[in-house]
Simulated assay, not measured.
Amino acid sequence: MPLPADLTARLSLPLIAAPMTGVSGPELAVVACRNGVIGSFPTHNAANVEVLDEWLDQIGTAQSGHPDAAPLAPNLVVHRTNERLAADVDQLVAHGVELVITSVGSPEPVVERLHAAGCLVFADVATLRHAQRALEAGADGLVLLTAGAGGQTGSANPFAFVRAVREHFTGPLVLAGGISDGHALLAAEALGADLAYMGTGFIATTESLAPEDYQAAVVSASLDDVRQTEQVGGLPANLLAAWLESQRAPMVSAGDFQAERLTNGRTVWSAGHSVSGVHYACSAAEVIDRVRLQYRDARNQLLEMPCR
């Protein structure tokens, strides 16, 4: 199944403002949606279920006067240690969310309930095996976590991963990892993705929940300043080296993911390889406008290239 026409008609770019722990909130999601980009945030960024309800109310009110705004796509951690999962799903259903992105496990526990409410489910995956399992569980689309994605990441080359999945799946694909500008976004489409994630590019924005020192570190960093580790959350994640080197807390064992670590108030400085494309802090709307111009320029450059 391709992306629904009523969804694509509301997009000005084939882009999702990626859900980021400690960064994405209602303000960032609203600005993204109003500017034709799918907005998102992890539900665990809301301190509790009551705050999640307030956030969804806030977003719904902001969107009420903008019927052509892009959809919201909250992110659910579906790992067995997420004690809020059922209650968070209840809120998403009650608020009529159109699209949900699942992370850290099979979407099976939530697919039936969300589908019954008319909600599409995209699952993020980092391997071909996980992609197949997500589709067998009923996922409508896949978010491919590739090498260089900020925060939780994968290790597969994006060119190889997208093409390998496209051999067997014709439905919606989202490429996550390394999307720093409109040129990379167009390249993701040429590769076979329907949409792409941009996360790191939205960290240093007015609407971001990230503290000022984190935003400043993103602006000053390059991709050489990104390190992959499993010792912070238990799963492979790309983080800023400066933050990692400053930590004194005990590191966790590889594979020991616990959902409660996402809500313990600790700010983790995640960033992907696309950090090299962040040169100054600005509004989220300015980021989107810049990507839109770059995307048009990239398309025009391709049209002007001679056939070989």
Rank of each mutant, 00 (worst) to 15 (best):
G65R: 00
P71L: 12
T8D: 03
H115R: 04
T102Q: 11
H115V: 09
A176R: 02
R292H: 12
H95L: 08
V218C: 13
A117P: 02
L235T: 10
C33D: 04
T267P: 00
V89L: 12
A221W: 03
G105L: 12
S253C: 03
A237N: 06
M305V: 09
S276V: 04
F161T: 04
V110W: 07
T170H: 07
R10C: 04
D256V: 02
N264K: 00
V174R: 04
S222Y: 01
A254T: 10
H168L: 15
P158T: 09
A149K: 07
L303Q: 15
P42A: 15
T102H: 10
T263S: 13
Q215T: 09
G151A: 11
A73P: 04
A149P: 06
V174K: 10
L114A: 09
F202T: 02
G177V: 07
W269S: 07
E286Q: 10
V219M: 11
S283C: 05
T21S: 06
A271H: 09
C307L: 14
A94N: 03
V162A: 11
A241H: 00
H66Q: 07
L92P: 06
R299M: 09
I203A: 05
L99V: 11
M305F: 13
E108N: 10
E98P: 09
V31H: 09
A184M: 05
F41Q: 03
S155K: 02
G141V: 10
N75G: 13
E286A: 09
L142M: 06
G96V: 08
G233E: 01
V30S: 12
P26M: 03
L11W: 03
Q132S: 14
D124V: 05
P74H: 07
Y214W: 07
V162W: 06
P107V: 10
R296S: 08
F257L: 05
W269M: 08
Y197W: 13
L191Y: 03
A237Q: 04
I16C: 11
E304D: 14
A217M: 05
W55H: 12
P250G: 08
A210M: 01
R261L: 01
E167Q: 15
R290N: 12
F169S: 07
L92S: 12
A94S: 08
P19T: 13
A86R: 11
W243E: 05
N45K: 02
E98C: 02
R266T: 14
I38A: 11
E230D: 07
A271P: 11
L72K: 01
A160N: 14
E207S: 06
P2R: 05
V37Y: 04
P211Y: 00
D140P: 03
Q231R: 08
A131R: 07
Q91G: 05
Q91W: 03
Q301D: 15
V97F: 04
R34H: 08
T81S: 15
L72S: 00
E54L: 14
N238Q: 09
A87H: 12
A196Q: 05
H95A: 06
L186W: 05
L175G: 14
S180P: 08
I101H: 13
L7S: 03
G192W: 13
V121G: 10
L135K: 01
P107Y: 12
G154D: 01
I288M: 10
R34M: 01
